[in-house]
Design a protein around this nucleic acid. Structure first.
Lengths: 199, 199
DNA sequence: CGAGTGATTGACTTAGATCAATGACCGTGG
DNA sequence: CCACGGTCATTGATCTAAGTCAATCACTCG
C-alpha cells in the first residue's frame, strides 16, 4: 500500500480531516476540485449515474487509498464520491499540492513514481482476473505476492477473497485443496509455498 | 487510449524502434532500465518466474500501451518482458525523458496526468471485474463507456470480450439477449443504449 | 476462389456462486 | 468473570450461469 511518503511536510501541515455519514457526498460530478483526498477510515465509492438513472460504481476506495487523482489535473470532477459507510477523509489542498510539485522536484517525482507503481500493480490485478479457475487465480496471487516463498496475509481471508474476486467460500475451499495436495502450508497470517510439488 | 502527447519533441526525436521475434526478450529481471517502451505492434508480456519454475504473467501489453513505467524510477527491472507475438517497440531513452521532466514542467505534468488517468481507468476495470453476472458486467461497461447514450466499439467484439473477461460466446449471447429485450440497439461498430426500458 | 477470421447460435458440462449450518474467537457489558 | 452477540473460518448440498466444444454463415484478402 502507498505510504504517501512523497507528500511534502508543507502539504501535510495543511491537511484537514473530514467526517462523512453513510450516504453523504464528498463531492459531486461537475464540482470544482479543491482538494485531493485520502481515505482514513470507512469506504467511499466513486460513481456516475447512467441514462437509465442507475448508479454505476467506478471504484470503492478503502483506508489508505487515494481518491480521484486525475482531478488534480482537471477543473471538474467527472463522478460523484459518496460515503458507503461512515468515513473519515484527509483533504490536502489541491493548490498547495500543485505548488509543492512546482517547487519541490522530489515531491513531484515521488508522486509520479507512486502512480507508476500503482499502474503496474493494478495491471497485475487485472491480469489475475483474466484467470478463470479459482485455483490458478490463487496460485497466481501467491506467486506474485510471495517473498522468499512465504506470503504474508494482511487482513482477513474474506478481504483477500474480495481482492481475488472470489467468494470467501470458494477461497477457503481452494486453499484447503492446495494444502491437502501439499502445494502450500498454512499458518496464522502466513502461507508457505512448498516448492517442488508435482504439477 | 493515451496519445502520449505529453512527450516533448526532444524526447520523441530520440526514439528508436526495435523489432522482436516471438519469444525474444526485450529485457530481463535485474537488467538496468535505459529506455521507456511503447508497444507499436504485436504483444509483449511482462512476467516473472515463480519458485516452482513456472512463468507468472503480470501483464500483456498491446499496441498503444506503455511498458514498465515504474522502472523509470528504479534501477533494475523487476520482471521480464518477452514478445508473445512478433512485435515492434518504440524505445525512448530514460535519461532523455527524465531530463525533459526536469526542464519542462509541462512534460512532467503531462506524464503524471496520464498516469493518474490510467490509475482511475484501471480501477474502474477492476470494479467491473467484481461484477459476477455477464449481463451486469456488459451493462456496466456500456454505462461507463457511453457518450450520449452511444458506445462506439473499437476493435472486434472478440477483443471486447477479452477486455470484459468473458468468452466471446458469452458476450455474443449477452448482447443478443440485451438487444432482444430492447435494452440496446446494435449497429456496425456502435451500440445504442435505449433509455427508459424497464429494469 | 479458397483460406482465415469474426460473428452467431446450439448442446452439454462444470466450476463456482448461493444457501445453510457449525465451531472458534473475540470483545464487552452487566 | 462469564454469558451473549458478532464476525471469521470452514464445510456440506444444490443450482445455475458461463465455459467448452462444435457447427454455420458472412467477410475480406491475397
Amino acid at each position: 500500500m502507498p505510504k504517501h511518503d512523497w507528500l511534502p511536510a508543507s502539504v501535510r501541515a495543511r491537511a484537514a480531516d473530514r467526517k462523512l455519514k453513510t450516504g453523504e457526498a464528498l463531492f459531486r460530478q461537475g464540482d470544482r476540485p479543491v482538494s485531493f483526498f485520502e481515505v482514513i477510515a470507512g469506504r467511499v465509492r466513486l460513481s456516475r449515474v447512467d441514462r437509465a438513472g442507475r448508479e454505476v460504481v467506478l471504484h470503492v476506495a478503502g483506508p489508505g487509498e487515494t481518491l480521484a487523482e486525475a482531478s488534480l489535473y482537471s477543473d471538474a470532477y467527472h463522478c460523484d464520491a459518496i460515503a458507503s459507510t461512515a468515513a473519515t477523509l484527509r483533504a490536502y489542498p489541491k493548490a498547495a499540492l500543485l505548488a509543492a510539485f512546482g517547487k519541490d522536484r522530489k515531491a513531484a517525482q515521488g508522486f509520479t513514481a507512486t502512480l507508476a507503481r500503482q499502474v503496474m500493480g493494478l495491471r497485475t490485478r487485472i491480469e489475475q482476473r483474466n484467470i478463470r479457475s479459482a485455483r490458478d487465480r490463487v496460485r497466481h496471487y501467491l506467486a506474485v505476492n510471495a517473498e522468499a516463498g512465504v506470503v504474508t496475509v494482511r487482513g482477513t481471508l474474506k478481504d483477500l477473497a474480495g481482492e481475488l474476486g472470489l467468494t470467501h467460500e470458494a477461497l477457503y475451499r481452494t486453499m484447503a485443496a492446495l494444502a491437502r495436495k501439499g502445494e502450500i502450508k498454512r499458518g496464522r497470517g502466513r502461507i508457505v509455498l512448498m516448492r517442488g510439488h508435482k504439477v
